[in-house]
Each structure stands twice: as structure tokens, then as C-alpha cells.
Design a protein around this nucleic acid. Structure first.
Length: 875
DNA sequence: GTAGTCACG
DNA sequence: ACGTACGTGACTACT
């Protein structure tokens, strides 16, 4: 049996600490949660680090304690507990119960006394004891066996008081802490002490005299001084104060050490409490073993033979795969259901079955799925073209609320109240323990997923109609999924030798820079480690610290740029960083993603991820291939057409977000600027600086451009000041001038924030929604962020709507015209195609036409295009 | 797994 | 007074 470790927590003190340390967070129903949250993060950290076998949280009971008998003013003058904190105590108790930690309170005694008493008992039993509190008084309890943890700001930052630490910090022993408090008093508990004696004096006196008592025994011998007078005058107060500060270690408590065994949390309960409190980050981080849940019976068959009559006109289908990398991963199995008959069959069985193949390819046979794009890609790998997808649960859920996280069917289904399905983790395990279960278990799991889709289809369809989002879902996202699937499966060809050559060149340059940097630093260190780099720059070389991060010095590019004049090394580091990034992410990283069979990369476009409606791209991310700097831009030379004699054709919207803003705000000046086809940044500069076109300097245009960006992002003076490297005041003035010049924009911004407050969400041109629960938060940061989001999302989201519509129109147009050209990529405001040379002329005509008229706005949309033998040349 | 950094729109 | 620009993904170091 291992040694017991007892963890004693001071509930009230920790709750208070957390309440004042953290911003006033609230859960979805408006209950404040900051104290409970701080308590939880602290607890999580300590549980993980200490793994106690016994635990107790002690609380203060009632208003009066035995201390009031000797001193009526004890804790007098204390502020009443704020209601925002009081309301959290019931949740705190619920939380502690979910952890299965004992809690205890006792009339007339404070939490301190309960803790002191139990600590002493545990010490007698030779246990290790840890006391956690926000109150330094508790440190008097420290011994060789008892360590006192005091939380510092932020709650998870903890100072550990052992007798040695107290000695080092104050030069006192733990028992002298009470003498110290007796002399100096404690304003928060209304303990008087000796007026004029603070921490420093108290420590000095105690080093000389040892304790309050022996001080007064020898006070006669003390030199005459002001201090002596005060001490003599306040002898009674000092002794009383010491008594009040002394934790009583023999409280008559009726809970025993044996009762304090800590079995670990009731994970299900704890998740419930976290859910109620909206502790999303904790829920996501939690690695609780997914408990097997109760599910209703489901009849299903493992089909050996599937005949045509089993395949109905409408069915839910689910393709279960090993992991999210559906272009390469193993396929585990298929399930089909029509709500009455449910059957599963293996991938192998499916491939040999003509009836199923035909059914999957039959446009008139309607499929209900979730993440149909993944299924489309899988089937494409074995030469089957998926047609007739009528419902996609992943997309429907995303449209209803883009904040719904996870593409896992169990998680999605749960969002809509459907729970008859195990978590993937329960079935497969996780991490190293991941394994495919027996076919029976697998078949049931996959069947349940299909059944969940079947069951939720009418519910989601209803929600979409209720929100007037059915068109967005059915006419935009659903057809787009299939287009994206084709783009992904088609892939884009990468010329490996080009990358290899670039890699070698980079290698040389990087090692030269590395040597130079090490020489200038006078030692070898890892330049890639911001920590080590910080030490070199700001300690060894003594450069001024411009900005700090949570963990140390910031060495970000904007900081280094400010330090360029200070030391030669800075430029080398900037260059090194730039090249190292190219090498690791865009040369080595990209090459790892190239499929060897076809020498192509097959990205995955996440269609149900961003909160604005944009796509994102992973494995590899083809939406952030370098372009701004020439060195990086050359990476694009490695992206080539898949056929000899073809070209890459790129078309991008010019200023789409500002055009959307012009449309939505209907600002007269902005609309006019676009209608006249002016350079928008120049035009902005003219209006803001009140100058004529030819008086606009490049600096003015640059400033105007930054303001335009700021407007789109939901402007703040600070943000603009950072981007332009000017003061906040100047930035504020810019913004003011801008809003005077474009009053329609100002009105739009005010209106959209109001609307968000009223409805709780904002919408885009095609009625995409984003909920903004924080818009009414009393926390300034959260609210400000939500307000900026309210301004930005309709703009960014509508631009996303437009290009998505353009993709659908473009796909149809290419088919109509019978062209061989193919859409390969979307990069937020641009589309990239590959095309045979003879189709270039047609594309030059139809691509801008289609893109510019995807959605008609109050201002024209403008599309620029280019083509070349590589992506680099399509500029 | 998180933080810092940096690539894109 | 509060402390920030909006939306992403990948890599490295380090806990």
C-alpha cells in the first residue's frame, strides 16, 4: 500500500481568489462562472500533479465563529460577498460532488480550523499533506510533512510553502507566521495588530525576539523609540491579534480521515456539470474514458449478400473510415438503413456487389449521409461516382450553427438530442490503444451512425426551413460539397525535382545564416527556440525588450523589426526565420503530402469548420502558399498542370470584402467609388485627407489601405495603431475621419452591433448565421470581441457566399460548354483552374463573367485573371 | 498538448 | 479603465 497523500482545500478562500483573479465569465444561461472556473483549472492542475489519495474541501459555515467571542469586530467591515460570486457557490458544491471530493463545514469554525485540525491528524498518521488556499495565513501550518500551496494570480500559478521556503522568504519559521500577523494585523479580517508595524518591521522584531510573547517579556530592555511606545501601547491588541490569527488545530470535527478517500471524479457527472457551466475548453481537453452509454435496441444485419430489393429509393448511408485522412486511409465498412431495415457490409463485400455500386451511382436513389464529401472521395478511389446525395447531416448542422464542433456523428447527433450511439472512443479506444473491434461491434456502431442520420434528417430539415436557410444548405453547400470532393480527388500536380532543388539552395543559405548568427551571438544555440533566442537577444546582447509574451520575451517579427537598428544579428535572424519557415513547411512539409502514385497533393477542404462560412484547407493547406515575398513565391513554381501543354489559370476577386461592405452599408461615397471603378485605397485617402487624386502620396494610400482593412475587421484604434506603427491617438483620429467621410459605413457598423444584440446572431447575404453570445457580456474584452465579430462576419461570410456560388455556377458552366478545364483550388477570393491551352481564350471570357455575376450587388464585382505554366506564372 | 511564430486571404 | 485588429493551418520547441 502506497503512502496516503491528503489534499485539503480552502473552499471559500479559493473561490474568492478565483472570483477576483478572473474576468467575470458567464455560461450560456447568464450565470457567472469565473470563480468556479478558476477553482476547476486549479483543481485539475493539482490533481494531475499530485495524485492525492484523500481529499476534502472545507468551507466556512455561517457568519459567526468562536473568534467572535473574544473579538466582536472579527472580520468586521468586510464587503458583502458580491452577488455574482454568491450565485456561484451552489455550482461549486455541485462541481466538488461530481469530482467525488468530500466537503465539510462546521458551525462556529472557519475552513482554516477544519484544515488545521485534519492536517495535524494526518500528520500523526504519517501522511503527506497538501493544503491549498488563496490565503497566506495557512502557511503557519507548514511542516516537513505539510506543504501549503498558495495560488497566485491566474489560479494555476502556485507558490509552495514548505518550512524551508518560508525561512528563505521571510527568515521565519512557520509558527512565527502568526506572530507576524499578530504584530502587523490583517486589514481584510479586521485584525488590528500594532499600528505602524508592517511586514518588514514584524519580521525584524521576530528575528530578534522569536515571538510576540518573548518580545513583551523583554520589552523593558528595548531601546526607547516611537516603535517601542507603540508596542507597549498595543500589547493587548498584539496578543489578541495573534490569538485570532492562530489556526485552531483541535476543532471538534465529526469527519474522520478514513472518510476522505478520493476515488477520482465521476466523469459523467463532471462532464454534465462542465456542460452546464459551458466549460468548453475543459470538455474538449478532457481525456475521460468515454463511458459506454445506454442505447436503445437496434436491429441490424451483417449482410453477406445485398440484393436490389434491399436498396430502397431513399436510404441513410454511412461510410466508416479509420481516420479523417479520407484520401488515403483504410475503409472499415458501410451501413445502410431506411428506418426499418438496417444492414452493414464490409468494404470488400461492397466492392464486389454490383447492385450496391449501381445504387450508389444512381442519381434517382436518394442518400442521406453525413460528410458526403468524404464518402465521395472514398468511393472515387475505387472508381465509383457517388450521386444523389439528398441530405448531409454535417453540412446541415453547420448551417444551423457553425459553432457546432466536431464532425463525428455521435457528437453531432448529441447536439440535436439523439444519444443512441456510442462515442468513437468507446468503440475504438484512443491513442496507442486504438483498434478495430470485432465485426459485430463494428457493424452495430456503423449501423447506429446510419440510423442516427436517418432519424435526424427530418429534424434538421425542419430547423433549416424554420431559419430560412434551406436554400443556403440545399442550393449552395450541398452541391458545393460534391464540387469540392471532385477538386480534392482530382488533386494538383507537384513537381518534386523543383522542390528538391529549392530545398538544397535553402539548406545552404540557412546553414550560412545559422553560422553567422552563432558567431554574432558568441555561442551556439537553437535559433528556432523563442526561449533560447530571447535569452541571447535580451540578456546576453542586452537589446531592449519591446514586448513580452505570457512565458517570456516576444521575438516575433514585428518586435525584431523594431530592433533592427540595434544589432546586426537581428536581420540575420529575420532572414533565418523566413527561410526556415519555407524549408520546413513549404518544402519538406509539402513533399510529405505528395502522393507517390500520381505525384499530386490532395488537400481536404473543410466545409463545416469556420465560423464565418469560409472554407479551410488541410493536409496540405493550399490556401497559405507563400506569395507576398519573392523567395517564398517561388514555391508556386512547383505547382504545375497535370497534363502536358496545359496551364494553370487563376482568377481573383478584386476588393471583394470592401465591395460587400459597400453593398451592405449602401454608403453613398463607397458605392460611388466602386461604380466609378476607382482605386479604392486612393479614393479612401482622398476622402480621409481631403486631397485631390494626384495629391495622394504613397504614405497616404498606405494608411488608407490599413484603415480599410481595419474597417473590415471591426475597427479598433489600437489595432490600427499596431498595423501602421502610429500612436493610438493618431489611429483614433484616422478612424474618426474615415467614419465622417463614409457615414453610411458608420451607420452600418452601429446597426449590425445593435442587431446582433437584439437577435443574438448576425447573418450574411445568403442568410448564413453566426451566433454571438458574448455580445451582451459584461466583460469588456469578450463583448468588444463579439462586437468586432458582428461587424466582420457579415462581410467575410458574404464574400464566402459569393465565391461559393461562383464555384457552383462555374462548375455548371464548364460542363455546359463541354470544356476539359477543371477547377482545382479555392483560396477565399480566388479560383484556380487547370486548362488545356486551347481553352484559355474561353476561360478568359467565361470565368470573369461567371464570377462577377455570381450574386448581384449594389456595386459591380471585379475579377482579375492570369495564367501560366506554373502557379507562379499565373500572376 | 500548448505556446509562439508565421504563411495565406 | 478595460486590451484588441477578422478568418485560418503547420511547424518547432517544450512541458
Amino acid at each position: 500500500m502506497t503512502k496516503d497523500k491528503l489534499l485539503l482545500l480552502d473552499g471559500n478562500s479559493l473561490a474568492y481568489r478565483a472570483f477576483f483573479a478572473l474576468p467575470l465569465l458567464a455560461n450560456d444561461s447568464g450565470i457567472h462562472t469565473n470563480a468556479v472556473y478558476g477553482f476547476t483549472t486549479m483543481l485539475q492542475k493539482i490533481l494531475e500533479e499530485e495524485k492525492p489519495t484523500k481529499m476534502l474541501v472545507a468551507f466556512d459555515a455561517g457568519k459567526t465563529t468562536f473568534r467572535h467571542d473574544s473579538y466582536g469586530e472579527y472580520k468586521g467591515g468586510r464587503q458583502k460577498t458580491p452577488p455574482e460570486l454568491s450565485e456561484q457557490f451552489p455550482y461549486l458544491r455541485k462541481l466538488i460532488d461530481a469530482y467525488q471530493i468530500k466537503r465539510y463545514e462546521k458551525e462556529l469554525y472557519e475552513a482554516d480550523d477544519i484544515i488545521g485540525t485534519l492536517a495535524k491528524q494526518a500528520e500523526n498518521e504519517k501522511m503527506d499533506v497538501i493544503i491549498v488556499s488563496g490565503d497566506k495565513d495557512l502557511t503557519q501550518l507548514a511542516t516537513d510533512q505539510v506543504t501549503v500551496y498558495i495560488t497566485r494570480k491566474g489560479m494555476t500559478d502556485i507558490e509552495k510553502y514548505t518550512p524551508t521556503h518560508i525561512e528563505e522568504k521571510y527568515g521565519l519559521s512557520p509558527s512565527q507566521i502568526i506572530d507576524m500577523k499578530g504584530l502587523m494585523g490583517d486589514a481584510s479580517d479586521n485584525i488590528p495588530g500594532v499600528p505602524g508595524v508592517g511586514e518588514k518591521t514584524a519580521i525584524k522584531l521576530l528575528k530578534e525576539y522569536g515571538s510576540v510573547e518573548s518580545l513583551y517579556e523583554q520589552i523593558e530592555d528595548m531601546k526607547k523609540s516611537k516603535m517601542k511606545e507603540k508596542l507597549v501601547e498595543n500589547e493587548e491588541s498584539a496578543k489578541l491579534s495573534k490569538k485570532l490569527a492562530t489556526i485552531f488545530t483541535e476543532a471538534p470535527i465529526d469527519i474522520k480521515l478514513e472518510d476522505l478517500n478520493y476515488p477520482g471524479p465521476n466523469e459523467e457527472e463532471l462532464l454534465n456539470v462542465w456542460q452546464e457551466l459551458s466549460f468548453k475548453s475543459l470538455i474538449e481537453k478532457s481525456d475521460f474514458q468515454a463511458e459506454e452509454i445506454e442505447t436503445a435496441e437496434l436491429d441490424f444485419d451483417i449482410a453477406q449478400e445485398v440484393t436490389e430489393d434491399m436498396l430502397k429509393d431513399v436510404m441513410a448511408v454511412h461510410v466508416e473510415i479509420e481516420n479523417e485522412h479520407y484520401h488515403s486511409c483504410r475503409v472499415l465498412g458501410f451501413a445502410f438503413t431506411d428506418g426499418a431495415e438496417t444492414f452493414y457490409l464490409s468494404f470488400e463485400a461492397m466492392q464486389q456487389n454490383e447492385a450496391i455500386k449501381n445504387w450508389l451511382e444512381d442519381e434517382t436513389k436518394k442518400k442521406y449521409m453525413s460528410d458526403s464529401k468524404s464518402a465521395q472521395a472514398i468511393l472515387n478511389r475505387v472508381g465509383i461516382t457517388l450521386r444523389g446525395v439528398e441530405f448531409d447531416m454535417l453540412l446541415a448542422a453547420y448551417i444551423v450553427n457553425p459553432a457546432i464542433s466536431g464532425d463525428d456523428i455521435a457528437t453531432l447527433a448529441k447536439e440535436f438530442g439523439y444519444t443512441d450511439i456510442q462515442a468513437n472512443e468507446t468503440i475504438y479506444g484512443k491513442g496507442a490503444k486504438w483498434a478495430v473491434p470485432t465485426e459485430k461491434v463494428l457493424a452495430e456502431h456503423v449501423s447506429r451512425k446510419a440510423f442516427a442520420i436517418w432519424s435526424l434528417q427530418p429534424i434538421l430539415e425542419e430547423k433549416l426551413k424554420e431559419n430560412e436557410q434551406f436554400a443556403l444548405y440545399y442550393d449552395l453547400e450541398l452541391p458545393l460539397a460534391s464540387i469540392l470532393g471532385s477538386m480534392e480527388s482530382k488533386g494538383i500536380k507537384v513537381d518534386i525535382p523543383t522542390l528538391e532543388k529549392m530545398g538544397e539552395d535553402l539548406e545552404q543559405k540557412i546553414s550560412a545564416l545559422e553560422k553567422e548568427i552563432h558567431d554574432l551571438a558568441g555561442e551556439k544555440f537553437n535559433i528556432n527556440s523563442p526561449k533560447q533566442l530571447g535569452v541571447i537577444l535580451f540578456e546576453k546582447l542586452g537589446l531592449p525588450v519591446v514586448k513580452k509574451t505570457k512565458t517570456g520575451y516576444s521575438t516575433a517579427a514585428d518586435v525584431l523589426e523594431k530592433l533592427q537598428s540595434e544589432h546586426k544579428i537581428v536581420q540575420y535572424i529575420l532572414d533565418y526565420r523566413q527561410l526556415a519557415k519555407l524549408q520546413s513547411t513549404y518544402i519538406e512539409g509539402l513533399m510529405k503530402e505528395v502522393h507517390c502514385e500520381d505525384s499530386k497533393v490532395h488537400t481536404r477542404f473543410q466545409q463545416a469548420l469556420t465560423s464565418t462560412g469560409r472554407l479551410s484547407s488541410t493536409d496540405p493547406n493550399l490556401q497559405n502558399i507563400p506569395i507576398r515575398l519573392e523567395e517564398g513565391r517561388k514555391i508556386r513554381q512547383a505547382f504545375v498542370p497535370s497534363e502536358e501543354g496545359w496551364v494553370l489559370f487563376a482568377a481573383d476577386y478584386s476588393q471583394i470584402e470592401l465591395r460587400v461592405l459597400a453593398h451592405m452599408s449602401n454608403d453613398e461615397a463607397l458605392v460611388e467609388a466602386f461604380n466609378e471603378g476607382m482605386d479604392i485605397h486612393t479614393r479612401t485617402a482622398m476622402d480621409v485627407f481631403h486631397v485631390s487624386e494626384d495629391e495622394v502620396t504613397s504614405n497616404m494610400r498606405r494608411a488608407a489601405k490599413a484603415v480599410n482593412f481595419g474597417i473590415v475587421y471591426g475597427i479598433s484604434d489600437y489595432g490600427l495603431s499596431q498595423s501602421l506603427n502610429i500612436t493610438r491617438k493618431e489611429a483614433g483620429e484616422f478612424i474618426e475621419k474615415y467614419l465622417e467621410s463614409f457615414p453610411g459605413v458608420k451607420e452600418y457598423m452601429d446597426t449590425i452591433v445593435q442587431e446582433a444584440k437584439l437577435k443574438g446572431y448576425v447573418t450574411t447575404i445568403l442568410n448564413r448565421r453566426r451566433y454571438l453570445p458574448d455580445i451582451t457580456s459584461r466583460n469588456f474584452n469578450l463583448r468588444s470581441f463579439a462586437e468586432r465579430t458582428a461587424m466582420n462576419t457579415p462581410i467575410q461570410g458574404s464574400a464566402a457566399d459569393i465565391i461559393k456560388k461562383a464555384m457552383i455556377d462555374m462548375d455548371a458552366r464548364l460542363k455546359d460548354e463541354g470544356l476539359k478545364s477543371k477547377l482545382l483550388l479555392q483560396v477565399h477570393d480566388e479560383l484556380i483552374f487547370e486548362a488545356p491551352k486551347e481553352e484559355i481564350e474561353i476561360l478568359e471570357r467565361i470565368v470573369p463573367e461567371v464570377m462577377e455575376h455570381a450574386i448581384e450587388l449594389a456595386v459591380p464585382l471585379k475579377v482579375d485573371f492570369n495564367y501560366g505554366h506554373t502557379w507562379y506564372d499565373a500572376k
